[in-house]
Amino acid sequence: MRLFLFLTLFCLSLLPVGGEAQPVPPGSDEPKAEDLGTLPEAPAPDEPKTRAAEEPQIETLYRQLAAASGEDEAKRIARRIQLIWLKSGSDTVDLLMERAAIALKGENYPLALDLLDTVVTLKPDYAEGWNRRATVYYMRQDFGRSLADIERVLALEPRHWGALSGLGIIQRQLDQEKRALATFKAVLDVYPMLDTAKKAVEQLETELAGKPT
């Protein structure tokens, strides 16, 4: 709960006035869909689509992820968690998510947003709908709206390392290095073997060490 409140304050403090798109600062990498932990491929048709029965399992998986001894083991566990996140329990929402994924890959962001607006309206308690829409806003460099959706993801799934990573990336884009460092450390609390988060922490610690206090 403390982690969520802490990150919520970050999100609110970073929202730009009017929610307008924010340009990528000079020298920063262009946004990529992968940055915000986009979803894995859809599960096989014969896999169950309801998440309710998965709740006890996911807690075990989170513990295993935190204790994984190597990257390969962690990746296998992480994918199992992601597949549980992906289950909406609704055939309609699943279809909309699939179409939104195609639109996102094709860089048809207006269509992706239309589809995902419907997803979050039909299923407001489905964290992955908000996560995917946060990704689309990020790709459009609309960091304010992306942060707002990330906040919704974390309210529903506080250990969502993709959303946390996205928060940290946007904080870096907005030159909020200290906040980004804290956020990426929170990512590693959930997923200690996540290489991108480890590198981000190392880079940010180096950058901050070279700056006057």
Rank of each mutant, 00 (worst) to 15 (best):
S69C: 10
D35L: 01
E98M: 12
M139E: 12
D94R: 02
G19I: 02
T135M: 00
L83P: 08
A101P: 05
G70E: 10
P31E: 05
D125H: 09
A127L: 06
L86Y: 14
W130T: 01
Q82A: 10
G89R: 11
I77A: 09
L111C: 10
P31Y: 09
R133G: 05
R63T: 03
G19D: 07
A74T: 00
A21R: 07
E30D: 15
L147G: 07
P110H: 00
A42V: 07
M139N: 07
G89Q: 01
P16C: 03
I58Q: 14
E71Q: 13
G144C: 04
E30P: 08
D29Y: 15
Y138L: 00
V153A: 05
D117K: 15
A134M: 05
I102R: 11
D114I: 04
K75N: 15
Q82H: 14
I150T: 05
Q64T: 06
Q57I: 06
L147W: 11
E41P: 06
E128G: 01
L116S: 04
F143H: 06
R51Y: 12
V153K: 03
N108Y: 12
E34Y: 03
I102S: 11
V119H: 01
R152F: 10
L15Q: 12
V136S: 05
A112Y: 08
F143L: 02
L65P: 00
G19N: 11
D94Y: 04
K123Y: 04
D125C: 02
Q64C: 05
D94W: 07
P124A: 08
Q57S: 12
N131E: 04
E71Y: 11
R76P: 00
A33Y: 07
A148Q: 10
S28I: 03
S13F: 13
E59I: 07
R76L: 14
D114W: 04
Q64L: 13
V153R: 05
P16L: 10
L61S: 05
S28D: 10
R140Q: 14
T92I: 10
P23S: 02
A101M: 13
R133A: 00
P40G: 11
E47K: 15
E107H: 15
P56G: 09
Y138A: 05
S90Y: 13
M97T: 10
W130I: 01
F143A: 01
L154I: 03
Q22H: 02
D35W: 05
L95Q: 14
G37T: 00
R152K: 13
R63I: 02
L14N: 15
D72L: 15
D35K: 04
K123P: 03
K123G: 04
P48I: 10
L104Y: 01
A74R: 08
V24A: 12
A52I: 06
D35Y: 12
G37A: 02
R79M: 11
Y138C: 02
L12P: 00
E73Q: 15
L154G: 09
S88D: 04
K32H: 13
T38K: 00
L39S: 15
A33W: 12
D117T: 11
A134L: 01
V136R: 08
E20Y: 14
L104R: 13
P110I: 09
